[in-house]
Design a protein around this nucleic acid. Structure first.
Lengths: 230, 230
DNA sequence: TGTCAAGATAAAATCGATTCTTTTGCGAAA
DNA sequence: TTTCGCAAAAGAATCGATTTTATCTTGACA
């Protein structure tokens, strides 16, 4: 949303580091971000950390409150449902247009990014969600919408998707859900998209997004039930 | 998108000041922002200015480029058209839902904010666009969508609308356009909305947004034509 | 005349320290 | 035992200065 050239600056590095950690469940939702910890951990000055975190707040991943610092955005089922609805509306709109207007280069990009995704394992050897997979997943979904004319719509979709990732990162269950064939869902979306089957692809994408949310909601309800009984 | 409580901090003050100035055409589009000027003008430290401007970059009003500082987002007709399309899609979606689901309190808020808008002059005594009008206009459009369930959709709409304001602030012509009855357009939208005429209100809103864009595009073409011939 | 490079200048990025604000801990009063 | 208020500690916000990077200037050379 903001960067132009490939120059590297400390703020960017720290921004990327914290963002990756956020999106891989490295912080408790709602927990305070101790800026000084980052100063020590990354060996940079406070100003750098502050600017990086300010950007994350702009992305909606971090909550900034005056005189009280920054906290990881707190997660609620209501917001997740809202987010999902917004995503479905916007992403299906953009996908439909991609299918209608996307050129051959875009088609190729879809195939390529799906291939990349299909060949990246969801989990690392020690069972953690893999950063490479997250990246590939993001790239695949971005590419699906890249045929659409509207840069703005794509940007909005990417922003909302990032917020969703915050939720997803909090359920390791997702990767272990036996009732779903996530790779298959991706394959279906890719195939229908490339086949220019607009209603089919749109429906597959909708189902994909909503299934993930449903799994998360189930997970959240289990968690609160446990907490209530235990 | 980020603030929580009503605490005032220097960063916020400066953010508001620069934002207001941005949205009232106080800077050339694409021009560099001299951070040190703000330091002098507002009597705050550079860190404060930096953080404020970083936020504006997050809002998409300012372009940040590493090692080169910040510039006012540059305006192009293509982007304006894209922005308009995205806004129409999202705002009409939200308005339709508002009309379907909004309660009486929302209805009252629409009437109230329209009344406020209708009684705020567009221009100050000396012909400048009035900050109070801009605020009332923003509030009116926000309220129209406030009946909709989706906070996220409302936030996205507000963000995109802010970007549009950047364009609008650059045409003083808008306020002098004889071919349009802007107050009438607002009244129509408000009336159809309160009357729960979904297709009518949606259509009126679409026309309102697109007319503004059309006027801006006409203005842009005149400007470039002048520049080419003169 | 035009191109290029070293030096000078301006601006961005970063730092470390200072100044506030909020939170926490503790003891006195109810 | 609880509540209140004050002091101490922690953390956020801000500052002023330093370091790094880009841009501009000027003069040698082709």
């Amino acid at each position: 949303m903001t960067e132009l050239l490939g120059k590297r600056t400390r703020v960017q590095d720290v921004y990327d580091l914290i963002r990756d950690r956020l999106l891989s469940g490295g912080f408790e939702p709602g927990s305070k971000l101790r800026l000084n910890d980052f100063v020590d951990a990354y060996g940079v000055s406070l100003s750098v950390v502050r600017e990086a975190v300010t950007r994350l707040a702009g992305d909606g991943l971090v909550q900034a409150s005056p005189q009280r610092g920054f906290a990881v955005m707190s997660l609620t089922v209501d917001d997740l449902l809202d987010l999902t609805r917004a995503r479905v509306l916007i992403e299906t709109l953009a996908l439909a247009e991609s299918i209608r207007l996307g050129n051959v280069a875009w088609e190729a990009a879809v195939i390529a990014s799906h291939h990349e995704l299909a060949n990246t394992p969801m989990l690392t050897a020690d069972g953690e969600t893999d950063l490479a997979f997250a990246r590939a997943h993001r790239a695949f979904h971005d590419t699906l919408l890249a045929g659409c004319q509207s840069t703005r719509l794509q940007a909005v979709a990417a922003e909302l998707r990032a917020c969703s990732e915050l939720y997803q990162s909090w359920s390791t269950h997702l990767a272990h859900d036996d009732t779903r064939d996530i790779a298959g869902e991706h394959r279906t979306i890719a195939e229908l998209t490339v086949a220019r089957d607009e209603p089919g692809a749109v429906e597959a994408l909708r189902a994909h997004i909503e299934r993930t949310t449903a799994a998360l909601v189930r997970y959240a309800e289990e968690s609160t039930a446990e907490r209530a009984s235990g």
